[in-house]
Amino acid sequence: MSSASTPTPGRGPLRRLGLLAAAAVAVVATVLVTAGATGDAHPPGLPGSPVRVVGIGDSVTAGTACNCTDFVRLYARGLTSRSTPATASNLGVGGMTASGLLDAIRRPGAIRDGVSRADVLLVTIGANDLMPELQRWATGGCPQACWAPQVSRVGDTVAEVVRTARALRGEPAERVLVTGYWNVFDDGDEAAAARGTAYLAWSDALSRALNAALCDAARRSGATCVDVYSPFKGDGTRNPTPLLASDGDHPNAAGHRLIASALLAASGR
């Protein structure tokens, strides 16, 4: 647990290794989740084949600190249980930023390849782009005028992430779901003890602003915005600790189930 004066790193312990190192050790898990799937399942891309769900983003997507079934696989299992057989590929990378994700989609590699095959694309990104603002807050403060420009830049970058991803697939029926955050940094009892109530109020305002920018980016780029703030925190007064891992930063198993449920509801499933 970090002290109140020392900011914790961005989402996922791999950030200390740097983004390239994190990407190098990230495990890309493709899981067939069709109920009772056998070798005679339809190959991807053919009529009647399983829906290909791909998750991209930061350590929230990757399932860091949870040791549980991540929301990408839970979402695909939810589709399957509702008579839409699905597979899941989790391409989340701890420490990933929106700008780093855009670069990864533009360059040859596992993320670009996975995105180009997605029937449903789940996107959770943007928190790590705001780490400099957390550092400024911890060393002297960072009011709205400090963080607003970066929040706007993140929104524009995420809109471009979605446009680039949709162009790769070239399929009008592809669904892109962009989530927000309950908090872009740590939250709940852990954050209150480590940083104090002033931090909770500051990070909540910043998180709400980022969520608004992400929803605007989704609308501008033809994606669906998925609210996870309300399921975690209601009107902002609910303590999200029961949904968080011990680090106070990442969702636990219950949190991942809640994110998957929000995604399924937003996609009409």
Rank of each mutant, 00 (worst) to 15 (best):
A65T: 06
L46G: 01
L14N: 07
G39R: 13
V25Y: 10
T61M: 05
P50S: 10
V25G: 05
L14W: 12
T38D: 10
R73F: 00
L46T: 15
R15A: 12
P47I: 00
L46S: 13
P13V: 15
A41W: 04
A24M: 04
T34W: 00
A65I: 03
A26K: 06
G39T: 13
F71I: 01
G36C: 10
G12D: 11
A22K: 06
P43Q: 08
T61Y: 02
S59V: 07
A23T: 07
T38E: 13
G63C: 12
V28Q: 06
A29L: 14
T30A: 09
S59P: 06
T64I: 11
A41P: 00
A41C: 03
R73I: 01
A26P: 05
G63Y: 09
G45F: 11
R52P: 03
L19P: 06
H42F: 03
V33C: 10
C66W: 05
P50K: 07
A24D: 11
G39C: 10
L46Y: 10
T34I: 01
A35H: 08
G12Q: 04
V51Y: 00
H42A: 15
G45Y: 11
T38H: 08
H42Y: 01
L74R: 13
N67S: 14
V72S: 02
A62F: 09
A24W: 14
R73N: 03
D70C: 05
C66R: 04
L32D: 13
C66I: 08
A41N: 04
A22V: 06
D40S: 12
V54Y: 02
F71D: 00
G63W: 10
A21R: 11
T38W: 01
T69E: 13
R52D: 03
D70T: 11
V31W: 01
S59W: 09
G18S: 06
R16M: 02
H42T: 11
A62C: 07
L74M: 05
G12Y: 14
A35E: 14
R16W: 00
C66L: 10
V28D: 04
V72D: 00
A62K: 04
R73A: 08
A35W: 00
V53I: 05
T64Y: 15
C68S: 08
V28M: 02
V72E: 00
D58T: 07
P50C: 08
G36V: 07
A29F: 02
D70S: 11
G12F: 15
L32Q: 14
V33W: 00
V28H: 09
R15F: 02
V72L: 04
L19N: 03
D70K: 04
P50R: 07
R73H: 04
V31H: 02
V25W: 12
V33R: 11
P13K: 12
V27S: 14
